[in-house]
C-alpha cells in the first residue's frame, strides 16, 4: 500500500474511533444533568402520573446503556431518530440548519482566507513598516473584541444608524442567492473580523520564520523582487502551519458561531443545539454533537494530510 494511502486510512479510522468516544461523552454528559426531558416537556404541569406516562412513551425507563446502544444502532443504519420534544425527524430539521451553518461558514471562509493570507504576505513584505503595523494593529483589535460585541457594534452602526444592512440574518429557500447574501452580510463581516487576526498573524509568523533561511538570502542576492521571493520561495515552505491554522478557523466557523447566530438571529445549528440542550432532548444533542465532532476531526485530518503532502521529508518517511 502506498504510504500516503495507508496514512489516510489510519487517520480516518482514528477519527471514527474519536467520534465514538465523543458520542459516549455527550450521552453521559446529557444524562447526568439535573432534570430530564419529560420534566422539561411538561414544565410546571408535571404531575407524577403525567411524568410516568411520558417517560414510558419516550422509552426513558430503560437503563442508560440500553438507550445508548439503541441509539448507536440507529445511527449506524443512518437513522438519527426523531426529536423527543416535538417529534420532528432529526435528519430533516438538522439538515436544513446544517446547510445554513455551512452556507454562512462558506462565505465567511471565501472572504476571510484569501484576505488573511494576502494581508499576511503584505505584512511580511513591509515588515516593521507602517503597512505591517496598520494591518497587525487592526486585526489584533478585531480578534480581541468579543464577537458578540463586534456584532452589536456592527448592528448599531450599519443597521440602526445608517440602515444600510439588515440586522436580522434570516434566510429561507424562497430568497434568491443575492437576497441571501445581502441578509448574511453583517454576520459574515463579524466572522471575518473574528478569524482574520489569527490566520493573518500565523501566516506572517510562519513566513518570517522561513525568511531567515539561507536560500532566501540567495534568492535576494539573485535580485528577485521581494514579493516574488515571498510567494514563490518562502510561502510554499510555510504552508503547513498556515493550513493548520486555516483549518482550525474553518472548524470554528462551523461549530463556534453559536453566539453570532444568536446575535443575528441566524437559523443555524447553534440555536438549534442550544434549544434542545435546554430541553434535554438527548437524541438531537447527540446528533448535533456528532456532526460538530465530525467537522472538527475532518478538518484536522485534512490539515494533517496537507501538511504531510506539502513537506517532502514527511512525504517520504525513512
Amino acid at each position: 500500500m502506498h504510504p500516503i494511502l495507508k496514512l489516510l486510512v489510519q487517520r480516518i479510522a482514528l477519527g471514527l474511533l474519536l467520534l465514538l468516544a465523543a458520542s459516549v461523552l455527550i450521552f453521559v454528559g446529557t444524562t447526568v444533568l439535573p432534570g430530564d426531558v419529560a420534566q422539561n416537556i411538561l414544565g410546571q404541569g408535571a404531575t407524577p402520573q403525567a411524568l410516568e406516562n411520558l417517560r414510558q412513551q419516550l422509552g426513558m425507563n430503560d437503563p442508560a446503556h440500553v438507550r445508548y446502544f439503541n441509539w448507536l444502532g440507529g445511527v449506524l443504519q443512518g437513522d438519527l431518530g426523531t426529536a423527543l420534544t416535538n417529534g420532528q425527524d432529526i435528519a430533516t430539521s438538522m439538515g436544513q440548519r446544517l446547510g445554513n451553518t455551512l452556507f454562512l461558514a462558506f462565505w465567511a471562509a471565501v472572504v476571510s482566507v484569501p484576505l488573511a493570507i494576502g494581508l499576511g504576505l503584505i505584512a511580511v513584505r513591509y515588515r516593521n513598516r507602517w503597512p505591517d503595523k496598520v494591518i497587525s494593529t487592526i486585526t489584533l483589535a478585531t480578534v480581541s473584541v468579543p464577537e458578540f460585541l463586534l456584532g452589536y457594534i456592527a448592528i448599531f452602526i450599519l443597521s440602526v444608524q445608517f440602515r444600510a444592512l439588515p440586522s436580522l440574518a434570516m434566510i429561507n429557500e424562497s430568497m434568491s442567492l443575492g437576497e441571501q447574501l445581502y441578509a448574511i452580510s453583517l454576520p459574515v463581516l463579524v466572522l471575518v473580523l473574528t478569524v482574520l487576526g489569527h490566520m493573518m498573524r500565523m501566516t506572517r509568523a510562519a513566513i518570517l520564520n522561513v525568511m531567515q533561511s539561507a536560500y532566501i538570502e540567495t534568492a535576494e542576492l539573485k535580485g528577485l523582487a521581494p514579493f516574488t521571493i515571498i510567494y514563490r520561495h518562502a510561502f510554499p515552505n510555510a504552508i503547513a502551519p498556515v493550513v493548520n491554522v486555516v483549518m482550525l478557523n474553518l472548524a470554528y466557523l462551523v461549530v463556534g458561531v453559536v453566539v453570532v447566530e444568536v446575535v443575528f438571529v441566524y437559523p443555524g445549528m447553534g440555536q438549534y443545539l442550544v434549544d434542545h440542550v435546554a430541553k434535554r432532548d438527548v437524541p438531537v444533542v447527540q446528533a448535533c454533537g456528532l456532526v460538530f465532532a465530525a467537522v472538527y476531526i475532518g478538518m484536522n485530518i485534512i490539515a494533517d494530510v496537507v501538511s504531510i503532502l506539502a513537506n517532502p521529508r514527511l512525504r517520504h518517511p525513512k
Binding site: F156, S159, V160, S167, V262, V263, V265, Q271
Partner: peptide, 19 residues
C-alpha cells in the same frame, strides 16, 4: 413572526424598522 430571542437583536430589529 420572526423569532428573535436575543433582546438586543430584537430591539435593533424594531429600531431599524425590520419589524
Amino acid at each position: 413572526f420572526l423569532v428573535i430571542n436575543d433582546a438586543t437583536a430584537r430591539m435593533a430589529a424594531i429600531q431599524s424598522g425590520q419589524v
